[in-house]
Computed example of a mutant assay.
Amino acid sequence: MATVSGLEGVVAGETEIGLVDGEKGYLVYRGYWAKELAISRSYEEVAYLLWNGHLPSSEELEMLKLEMAAARAMPEYLCRIVDLLPASVPMMLVLQSTVAALGEQGNATWPPTLRQAVRLTALLPSIIAYRYRRLKGLPIVEPLPELGHAANYLYMLNGQIPEEAHVQALSAYLILCMEHGMNASTFAGRVVLSTESDMCAAVCGAIGAMKGPLHGGAPSEVISMLADIGTKERAEPWIREVLDKGGKIMGFGHRIYKTKDPRAEALKIATEEMIGKDPSFDVAIHVEHTAIRLLEEYKPGRRLFTNVEFYAAAILQALELDPEIFTPTFTSGRIVGWTSHILEQAANNRIFRPQSIYTGPMPEGEF
Rank of each mutant, 00 (worst) to 15 (best):
N183K: 10
A184L: 04
T186R: 08
T186W: 06
T186N: 08
F187T: 10
F187I: 09
A188S: 15
G189R: 14
G189V: 12
R190E: 06
V191K: 05
L193W: 00
S194P: 04
T195W: 00
T195A: 11
E196W: 08
D198H: 11
D198N: 15
D198Y: 08
C200S: 15
C200V: 07
A201Y: 01
A201Q: 11
A201E: 10
A202D: 04
V203N: 08
C204L: 01
C204G: 04
G205P: 06
A206F: 10
I207E: 07
I207S: 09
G208I: 02
G208R: 09
G208F: 04
A209T: 11
M210P: 05
K211F: 14
G212Y: 03
P213S: 11
L214D: 00
H215Y: 06
H215P: 07
G216N: 13
G216S: 12
P219E: 08
P219Y: 09
P219T: 05
S220N: 15
V222G: 05
I223T: 14
I223S: 13
I223C: 12
S224G: 02
L226C: 10
A227M: 09
D228V: 00
I229R: 15
I229V: 15
G230Y: 11
T231P: 08
K232H: 06
E233N: 13
E233K: 15
R234L: 15
R234S: 15
A235C: 13
A235G: 12
E236S: 12
E236K: 15
P237A: 10
P237N: 11
I239P: 04
I239H: 09
E241M: 05
E241T: 07
L243C: 09
D244W: 07
K245D: 11
K245V: 00
G246H: 05
M250D: 02
G251N: 07
F252Y: 06
F252N: 04
H254F: 09
R255H: 11
K258R: 15
K260I: 05
K260W: 05
K260V: 07
K260F: 06
D261Y: 00
D261W: 01
R263P: 03
A264M: 04
